[in-house]
Design a protein around this nucleic acid. Structure first.
Lengths: 166, 166
DNA sequence: TATTGTTATACTCTATAACTATA
DNA sequence: TATAGTTATAGAGTATAACAATA
């Protein structure tokens, strides 16, 4: 299939407007995945703009929704976020009335987090937006291709997760 | 294949040590790609630590190596980095003696960047490290699977790139 | 008038060390 | 002693507006 659409900067190509050659880097999986993630994040960020949540905050809301009462530390570990940074993130969400924090019953050091009613409404909306976003980004892929992609991703993650084990 | 290896925190599973449930989010492509990118970046970052370059700076070195004399603006556009931020990045690399900047011949507003000899040595080393890193991260994948992955990535990027066109 | 690069600025994310209160 | 969470802080990445020089 031809690709008639072009960036507007291509209307007139002079010697100073030639493209930057990224051909070699595009064959590097790490680079291509990075570019894909940047694009996806930008697109997702715009998609959830109506919720006034950053992508990281949106993920916290979704995980807490599925794990009410989870401790702040486990939440941080699961999302690869350091505890000091999770503290700030959760406090922002608490200030917006989406999350409530309380001391855990069995360990007074531990903070147990859960969504408020408003947080649950946000989570519901976010799930819809996630679904819309995935369908938009993967529109070119068949169901079987989407499945392949997810399998490949999880197999790479297995390799990388093994690196962190003792 | 069974997975006997476990995180050390699994040695003893009490009610407070249960895992965080991410099962639903793992089915969301955007989330899985984000987690994969975080892991890859962390691993890559450690891999190139010897060069004392951040991942973003390393990419700039590699792209300038393949595109000597490229303008600062085109470099920024190609890597999805805003011009003000590319200015800072390039100045850091210039201060480290890896990049030289000079006014473009045909447009005195434009800044043409290229690698110094030291920069070229870094680029050579970075290409080796990129290769090592890719082979490590994709060790579980066959050649045909690696090819499939790259094809799927580029097809998703086509969709997302189309979003930015006029 | 528009574009290239720059400065200034602000916000987010990340990472570490040091502290507190519990365990 | 060790762990959960916090505070403080510093570095990097990202985004926008305003500016000078040039086109």
């Amino acid at each position: 299939m031809a690709r008639p659409s072009r960036r507007k900067s291509d209307r007139r190509i002079s010697r100073t407007e030639r493209r930057v050659d990224l051909s070699w880097l595009r064959t590097v999986a790490g680079f291509s995945l990075r570019m894909l993630d940047l694009r996806m994040m930008k697109s997702y960020s715009e998609r959830i703009a109506e919720t006034r949540l950053t992508p990281a905050a949106a993920t916290v809301v979704l995980v807490v929704d599925g794990n009410p009462g989870v401790s702040l530390g486990k939440l941080a570990d699961a999302l690869l976020i350091k505890r000091p940074n999770m503290t700030k993130l959760v406090k922002r969400l608490e200030a917006r009335g989406l999350i409530r924090r309380r001391a855990a019953a069995d360990d007074k050091r531990s903070i147990s987090v859960a969504l408020t009613a408003a947080g649950q409404r946000q989570a519901k909306r976010l799930r819809v937006l996630q679904d819309v976003q995935d369908n938009f980004a993967l529109a070119n892929l068949s169901h079987s291709e989407r499945f392949q992609l997810m399998m490949l991703i999880s197999r790479i993650l297995e390799t990388l997760d093994a690196e962190d084990r003792v």
